[in-house]
Amino acid sequence: MHIPDNYLSPSTCVAMTAAMAPVWAVSIKKVKNEVSRSKMPLLGIGAAFSFLMMMFNIPLPGGTTGHAVGGTLLGALLGPWAACIAVSVALLLQALLFGDGGILAFGANAFNMAFVLPFTGYFIYKLIKDRTKSQTGEYIALGAGAYCGINFAALFAAVEFGIQPLLFHNAAGQALYCPYPLSVSVPAMTIPHLLVAGPAEVVFTIVIFAFVCKTSPGTVYEGKKLSFKPLAVLAAVLVCLTPLGLLAAGTAWGEWGTDEISKVMSGGAALGYTPGGMSGGFSWSAVMPDYAVSGMPEAVGYILSAAAGTAILVIIFKLISSMKKGDNGKNNSAA
């Protein structure tokens, strides 16, 4: 679901970033006021979980791959505003360091995965949870939220892809950016997410949520024990398991490189050309492109990238928490 650079026109990117700007502004304000200093590092761990979940690629029908995002999980654990910040930071890290998702398209990616996903997921979770009292009911609510969240996000991404050929093409009718219209992009994105990636998100979300509730209930419920150790252990285990994501060999839909796209088959025929906006477009040289390190097997590069990403996210949010002074535990006492 990470839209690379040059798949969306620069004007679309600007529009999406402009749409995200107020969301980020409100999120930062909300997080500043609502998340206590002691809970700040949790945002880092949450962002790290999201980052790691996005590394587990799952093969999807049609030869492409997909992944879970964990936005609903973060929404349930930290609230939707904090989830928005956490997923945005994880996405930014992926774009800057690992070349996953575009720099120009960051606004669009953040809109889909850091805004649409956690908010949809969280409100559906909240809607169902408030009407049930049992633990099972909470899990069902969470599962429904996660499933709807990721599918809405996929739908938005598909629409962003699909409007490109309608709006931007050259005199010969060839698309300048993403070449697939809505009739191709919407089913291509949504069906695999409805069938495979959605259930995967549900499983990830519920399993991790149950683990967190059991080992560190203070994360979810105010006034209970808050311990970071089990969360760190879980993150370490996930880091070591990330090479499983390499088992799915295909490229995700809409994430082909400029060398691949002209050969991509769609509706029985290859595209046959490289869209003009892509061949001469913006390109960013990431530090570890595609989570790989030269001279090492892919799995090592994957583990290294996962560890680096997790560590950086934890450091970032620890630094932010150290800047937040004086309000230690303010919200805990208020609750």
């Binding site: 570890m288 390190v293 001279g295 560890a307 680096a308 560590a311 450091i315 630094l319 150290s322």
Partner: peptide
């Protein structure tokens, strides 16, 4: 080899992320 530097970077990041925020801030 820049790749070796990447390994060292990841090692340092992991050790750093386990430290206290104040110390991380000072070191960085």
């Amino acid at each position: 080899q820049p790749s070796f530097l990447k390994f060292v970077l990841v090692y340092e990041l992991i050790v750093l992320c386990l430290m206290k925020p104040e110390i991380i801030k000072k070191i960085l």
